[in-house]
Design a protein around this nucleic acid. Structure first.
Lengths: 336, 336
DNA sequence: CTGTTAGCGCTTTCAC
DNA sequence: GTGAAAGCGCTAACAG
């Protein structure tokens, strides 16, 4: 085990200088910084994060905080688990570039959140998908730097947040269809009034079709819901009332596509379809669904980077992340 | 911040006794252990893992080690990512019960693995899905306690491993079908000779059908592969040559089911189908697929528990985990 | 069984 | 700008 003293000896400086060279290079003469860094890399020195954290009297830790999931997991949650790997890796890679360690932590109620402060468990907190206002308030009340990463902007001002800009995502879906020559849009969604994410996608979509109000089918989310909504749309498709459908998420889109194909409607021949989320099970469809990637990884990566920065500067974090188009085979070019 | 000294004072014992009460309760009189624990919980004391690790001159860390994934991720890998959340949570909950912290680490080559030892990065290593023999050798060469968690047993003796017993999984599929009265089995797989997991599932399946050699269709894995294999099976189904199909994984099973239904074959009326993996996209099918859950969470949870234990005892780890049946609607009862 | 004591490797005053 | 020295909270000898 190489310690800081070994490096100090090799670089012929004091051990305090080694420490400063690593943590605050500006306070050391450039020549010495170089001597220290050379010696360090020659010896293969890695600072001990435990000792560092201990001396700093900090936790030495960034907490990835998530609501604990009981055994009763609903199907939606099961689907969104696919993003988990991306999220973990993104946060991890950001934290690795600091002197801190990543720890995972889950809570069941705000009581658990408050305990984090009492026990000095974290120097910074990345909240995963937190939407409950009381929980957000509890995190803010901790006095520990934090960032909330999730799919929607904050409803309160001043909250530190990195979020998927769902409104823009809806707008991208619209622009993709507009650019391909579509003029008679339809949106299939579910629980529109109750799920904020659905609302944002719909508003973004509608906003980018100037002069047209898209047809709106507000049924149920999920495969069965998509099936049912698609059946309602068939007559509109056959009459030429709509030439494209933006479905609020891939899961529902699977149902829509299955139902349309079963009804003898060709995709994209008779109708263009675009989904949302870029979940891998769209690969189970006989067509390659054009969809929108919500950029979860980037949302968390940038959120964590900004958290690390704000731990020094105290700056407020407000970071919208724009989804991206994943081209597929379900959007056709239409003549105007 | 409550320290061990505060607890010692409150419990009227020395601070060393507090430490012992937490780390080796057997070496302290029961009465004192209770006094210490009472005081600790009253004060809300949590041991400082950084100080603990520093003093122990260990890393204070269990590493979850995985091969780093480049940006070019194939679709299969995307599917299996679904297990990642389970894996992380399982390992995490096991590590939480120790004095250690969980850290995530990825490697691109054996060189990275060897660096772990040089830098005292871990007190124990949980290897995620490691199959490459050279990598396994590198981990063993580290001299750090480790356990490999993956889907197959080790090929070398003496390797510490917790694994999904795929052979038993295949046998469970077979027994499920036998118990429901099936006597003319078929197995659809892909790349049988090249993918050990497929081989084990097939052998387990075949072993549990006494006196019958199942029909074997060895095509390609994946939805398209399943489609093609199913087409080969249709005449056998119509002639009554087979009464059930065990498909090597759910992804391929999706293709099989789609193709059979499209051919007008009823499931389970004309043929029973059983899949393998319990991935959520089986919900994209119009039938509820009977499948086998590979118990990834348990494999990692038990593996980590055993690693923690073996760090004290030095015992070799060899832990097979048996998959479980997930009942669905694609297996019918047949009269003999 | 229990208390005393000496650090683990690092950061951060405090002098110079 | 730099070095000396004092601990951060804990564990592991060592004595008793």
């Amino acid at each position: 085990m190489i310690t800081r003293d070994d490096v100090a000896r090799a670089a012929r400086v004091s051990s305090a200088t080694v420490s400063r060279a690593f943590n605050d290079p500006d306070s050391v003469s450039p020549a010495r910084v170089k001597r220290v860094m050379d010696a360090a890399s020659r010896l293969g020195y890695t600072p001990d994060k435990n000792a560092s954290a201990l001396r700093r009297s900090g936790a030495g830790t960034i907490l990835l905080l998530e609501k604990s999931r009981g055994p009763a997991v609903d199907n939606d949650e099961r689907f969104y688990r696919w993003f988990y790997a991306d999220i973990i890796r993104s946060v991890k890679s950001a934290v690795d570039e600091s002197m801190l360690q990543l720890a995972l932590h889950s809570y069941t109620s705000v009581v658990d959140i408050r305990a984090i402060g009492k026990r000095r468990l974290a120097d910074g907190i990345v909240c995963h998908g937190m939407v409950d206002e009381a929980e957000v308030a509890a995190v803010r009340g901790l006095g520990i730097p934090y960032v909330i990463c999730r799919q929607m902007d904050a409803t309160q001002p001043g909250v530190n947040i990195s979020f998927v800009d769902e409104f823009s995502g809806g707008a991208i879906a619209a622009r993709t269809l507009v650019d391909a020559g579509h003029r008679r849009p339809c949106h299939i969604t579910g629980s529109l009034a109750h799920v904020p994410v659905c609302g944002a996608r719909w508003e973004g979509f509608a906003s980018a079709f100037p002069g047209v109000r898209p047809e709106l089918i507000d049924g149920d989310l999920g495969i069965a819901g998509g099936h049912a909504s698609a059946m309602k749309a068939t007559s509109l498709i056959k009459s030429g009332g709509i030439d494209c459908i933006f479905v609020v998420n891939d899961l529902t889109a699977v149902g829509v596509v299955q139902a349309l194909l079963a009804s003898g409607i060709r995709i994209p021949g008779d109708i263009s379809v675009i989904g949302y989320d870029n979940l891998p099970f769209i690969g189970t469809l006989p067509v390659s669904l054009t969809t929108i990637d919500i950029q979860m990884g980037r949302t968390y990566r940038e959120g964590t980077d900004l958290l690390l920065k704000s731990m020094k500067t105290g700056a407020v974090i407000h970071n919208p992340v724009t989804p991206t188009l994943v081209p597929g085979g379900t959007v056709a070019m239409r003549n105007r």
